[in-house]
């Protein structure tokens, strides 16, 4: 029995070691550059990190990222000046673009269409409008020199709060020892990413025994009633007004990038009434005959990014005729 237990442990250890080698050799794990909150309370990545973001169990999407000196994934350093025309594109993971090579981003595609323009992508996974508007407010000086500001607004998830508060708890959690260990042991990073550790976690925490009927999660979406939806829309609008009061909103150079299919009519009407410009990419996506999203996750694929770059370029072209 002793020999059996001892050999099982040794074999188990050697097997895991070998799997770790395979996971590293084939780069099955994804890299997540470290995050921090700077002196201005802005949450972003630690500068000067390079690596590869991986989606799917079998490297189905493999892309290079490059965190610049400002802490964002971009092919550019952010040094706005009077002599160049800069566009700041601010948003969540869709703008951060870990699902694409950093040199093939939306910003790069816009620059290909408008060679006089420099695009600064302030993208960070999890950013909502509060994060975005606070960022512009916090780096006011830098943004004074930027000629156009475009917020990517995911209406359904970006207007849930009317004030920004830095999430130190999350950053501290990601810096904690268990997370550091997870990031160093690639088999854990990989297993955690693909969800293979979930059943183990459920087993250890006892959750596995709680719901015996449903062995798996279902994505049941309960639609809001009309009244609930109206209240929700009102709350979102109030949040937006609150954010404008707190962080300001320069209507002359600020624009929303949004999808009118998922944005409420009341919000769009408010924007029109208040002369807040927006770029609606819904018509371009609707007209597209090929898919605009990746297969393995929900982000825009290369074609989707081309379309986004095109609608933004057209908008900048029409607004700033001198750039033609």
């Amino acid at each position: 029995m002793k020999k059996f237990i001892l050999k099982s442990i040794i074999y188990g250890f050697l097997i895991l070691l070998l799997v770790e080698v395979f996971v590293r050799a084939f780069h099955l794990y994804t890299e997540d550059p470290p995050r921090y909150i700077d002196a201005y309370g802005v949450e972003k990545r630690v500068p000067h990190h390079e690596g590869y973001a991986v989606t799917g169990n079998r490297n189905q999407n493999f892309s290079k990222f490059h965190i610049n000196a400002s802490g964002f994934n971009s092919h550019r350093e952010f040094n706005p000046s009077e002599h160049t025309f800069e566009v700041a594109l601010i948003g969540d993971s869709f703008i951060e673009g870990f699902h694409q090579d950093f040199y093939n981003s939306i910003g790069k595609k816009i620059e290909a269409q408008l060679p006089q323009v420099h695009v600064y992508q302030y993208g960070y996974a999890g950013y909502d409008l509060a994060n975005q508007m606070h960022l512009v407010h916090a780096y006011e000086e830098q943004f004074m020199a930027i000629d156009e500001i475009i917020y990517y607004l995911n209406y359904e998830s970006d207007l849930d709060r009317g004030v920004y508060e830095p999430n130190y708890d999350r950053i501290n959690m990601l810096r904690s020892t268990p997370f550091k260990i997870r990031d160093q042991i690639k088999i854990l990073a990989y297993g955690s990413k693909i969800g293979v550790l979930e059943p183990l976690k459920r087993l250890v925490s006892g959750q596995a025994f709680e719901n015996k009927n449903e062995g798996y999660e279902t994505n049941k979406v309960t639609p809001y009633s009309i009244k609930e939806q109206r209240l929700k829309d009102l709350q979102r609008l109030e949040n937006f007004k609150s954010l404008m009061r707190l962080y300001g909103f320069d209507k002359t150079k600020t624009t929303f990038l949004l999808d009118s299919r998922t944005t409420s009519d009341s919000f769009l009407a408010y924007c029109q009434q208040e002369n807040i410009a927006y770029i609606d990419f819904a018509p371009a996506f609707k007209a597209s005959k090929t898919s605009t999203n990746l297969i393995y996750d929900w982000h825009w694929n290369n074609h989707g990014r081309e379309l986004i770059a095109k609608v933004i370029s057209n908008y900048i072209n029409s607004k700033h005729k001198q750039l033609k």
Binding site: I15, L18, V19, F22, V23, N57, E198, G215
Partner: peptide
């Protein structure tokens, strides 16, 4: 043998899909 064991564990991860009903 060790190599095969490791490859088997690896393949379990490569083809793992948490959306599958495993009964």
């Amino acid at each position: 043998r060790l190599l095969i064991y490791a490859l088997i564990i690896l393949s379990m991860m490569l083809f793992y899909d948490d959306g599958v009903n495993r009964s």
